[in-house]
Design a protein around this nucleic acid. Structure first.
Lengths: 229, 229
DNA sequence: CCAAAAGTGTTCTCGATACACCCATGT
DNA sequence: ACATGGGTGTATCGAGAACACTTTTGG
């Protein structure tokens, strides 16, 4: 609510000269695995940090975010979205932090992390600013699951409807009705069935689906040019 | 869609040392007047610029944005929201731009601009990056009018339902049904009637309403800490 | 009495919800 | 045969869209 507050007092002149700031990037990289919502974190003494890095001249901010992800996890993210830019006051010198949300497919095997470790979101205390960024990332992720298709960026190439539903449920934290879920998903035309079925255990095999290209309204609150000019 | 693209190639090491960037802020300040959607613009040769400025050490980014607004228009905005942060490549040296959307009440009289001028959005060509920022601001404003109450930040203290509807229609560019509009607005409980009516011309006077505090979900995609840490 | 904007209800459609059983397979 | 997860249909409800007339005032 702070941001929508009313008028503020005028402030000193801040145009002349200045403008050089320390800019760094922090990435909230999320996956889902075995019913847990996981975030890539770097150990930092007692607590944890988000993967971070500096932008480099002449590469776009989001390319820098991708590099940070690859360097700390050896993974290529499937989705990347800018979250928010904030100034950190209690730091010296003054710093500007650009934060990102990234998603990768849930995988059965532990991904080949380099410096980062997958940690369950709930039980991973982060240092000050990082904690706020993570909290906001989770709020935004949950909100977007409701009105976009970003959940698919947490899925592997092919998957069953039950797997998709399980990812939704883990991410938003509430159980969903199987028939209503399937109806909505199929009605939206976002999926196409593959020719394969998966035989899992002693039960009926599951039809596998693939995310159909051109059905991702996820970007509707993100500019088309997204981080490049 | 660019932002949700798949994996990218790894890039050179960009962590060490670096991180000092020129950071500047651009503000899209919007109002509605006489059926026109207006933006505050500064003349710049043949075309126009957005109000801009640099952040200053130890003041939050959004406070800097407010200062920029006041300096260029002598107005205090009613709503301020961070839009997007992008890096501008074709500039030398490399620059990072933090963009904001701000709203002020439509006013009958022309507001007391200092250096900025109110221009109709459609017919105000801006320089490169500014044009993209403006386009995105309009997309976001229209989207948010659909599922939030930010329209109230374009209204004066009290107003009639017809005036409110006219502002909506101007902002989103489509006509609305009067009865459905009034039903939705009143059903939402966002307004409270004042004791006054406005006698306008030779017709029935309009009941005036006030925006009821505590009914602004506009911030739900914006972090609570909004620009400060 | 006429012009001009304010105000007011009903019907319909569609998307979301709640809810329970049969199907295909492995052991 | 039974245990396990995969797969299916129907009734209900609420939100949103379409649609036209009466009311109050000033001139």
């Amino acid at each position: 609510m702070a941001i929508s507050a009313g008028p503020t007092q005028p402030q000193k002149d801040l145009s002349p000269g200045g403008g050089a700031f320390l800019v760094d990037i922090r990435v909230v990289l999320i996956t889902v695995n075995a019913g847990q919502l996981l975030v890539a974190a770097l150990p930092s003494g007692e607590s944890w940090q988000l993967p971070r890095g500096y932008p480099f001249a002449n590469i776009p901010l989001d390319a820098a975010a991708r590099t940070i992800i690859f360097e700390s996890t050896n993974l290529h993210e499937q989705y990347l979205e800018q979250l928010y830019t904030l100034s950190v006051r209690d730091d010296e010198p003054c710093r500007i932090v650009v934060s990102y949300l990234a998603l990768v497919a849930s995988t059965a095997d532990t991904p080949p992390a380099t410096t980062a470790i997958w940690r369950e979101v709930k039980s991973t205390p982060l240092a000050d600013v990082d904690q706020m960024v993570l909290d906001y990332a989770i709020v935004r992720l949950r909100a977007k699951l409701g009105y976009t298709t970003i959940a698919f960026h947490l899925m592997p190439e092919t998957f069953s409807l039950s797997e998709l539903q399980a990812v939704y449920e883990t991410a938003i934290g509430v159980p969903l009705d199987k028939r209503n879920f399937r109806r909505r998903i199929t009605a939206s035309g976002m999926l196409e069935p593959t020719s394969e079925k998966r035989r899992d255990g002693s039960h009926r095999p599951a039809q596998l689906y693939r995310f159909r290209a051109g059905h991702d309204p996820a970007a509707f609150l993100t500019p088309q040019w997204a981080g490049e000019a």
